[in-house]
Design a protein around this nucleic acid. Structure first.
Length: 197
DNA sequence: ATACTGATGGCCT
DNA sequence: GGCCATCAGTATA
């Protein structure tokens, strides 16, 4: 049970994405310890990835994607929800991994309080849902996972069967197979992933 | 089971 | 003005 360090994140986003499956997202911001196992992610590149926020170069919104690896990139989705990414790759090279679904482990009561009463399986099975359950907002944009009150730790979870599909909800870059998920998990955002084409 | 829709902020051309 | 890396609700089968 050790916090992942910056070196883990400072690699190609596809490698980081695959290696994040099975790890624990931890939030100690509010005095309650929230913990969830990462079961679904998507990799985003910068230039060369038309589905990425960084495709057209740096901007005020995407600037943390171009910064040091191991920081959170949080943005507002559809004006209502938040989505949380982990910044990857070398400084100056944009790359990120979107956290799409978690299996709730610790602090389930607190998550239910924030999400409203519903089945545990529906607490964190989507990028906006897990941000709501964990209390992640625009305020956490740029938080350092290496030193901050939010981090990811290794849970020694080996033997995972990893599935691969197109990314969800995109038009540009929709054909790239950059979504990864734990095949047997009931906590992913969709039972049937979009076909690879 | 799939299909649509409204909510709603901010970034983009 | 148009377009989203979404979600919960409603409708139709």
């Amino acid at each position: 049970v050790a916090r992942l360090r910056r070196g883990f994140y400072a690699r190609d986003p596809v490698d980081v994405a695959r290696d994040l499956l099975g790890k624990m997202l931890v939030n100690a911001m509010d005095g309650v310890l929230l913990r969830g196992r990462i079961v679904e992610v998507e990799a985003y590149r910068g230039q060369a990835d038309p589905g990425s926020h960084a495709y057209r170069g740096p901007s005020p919104r995407n600037s943390v994607m171009f910064g040091d690896a191991g920081h959170l990139y949080v943005y507002i989705s559809y004006g209502i929800h938040f989505c949380a990414n982990v910044v990857t790759d070398r400084t100056g090279i944009a790359g990120a991994v979107l956290l799409r679904a978690l299996e709730p482990i610790d602090g389930v009561g607190e998550m239910e309080k924030r999400r409203g009463p519903r089945p545990v399986v529906d607490l964190c099975n989507g990028p906006g849902k897990l941000c709501q359950a964990f209390g992640i907002t625009r305020e956490q944009n740029g938080v350092d996972l290496d030193t901050g009150e939010v981090w990811i730790e290794d849970d020694c979870c080996v033997n995972l069967k990893i599935g691969n599909s197109r990314r969800i909800g995109l038009s540009a870059g929709a054909d790239l197979p950059l979504r990864f998920y734990v095949t047997d998990s009931a906590y992913v955002s969709r039972a049937r992933p979009p076909a690879l084409r």
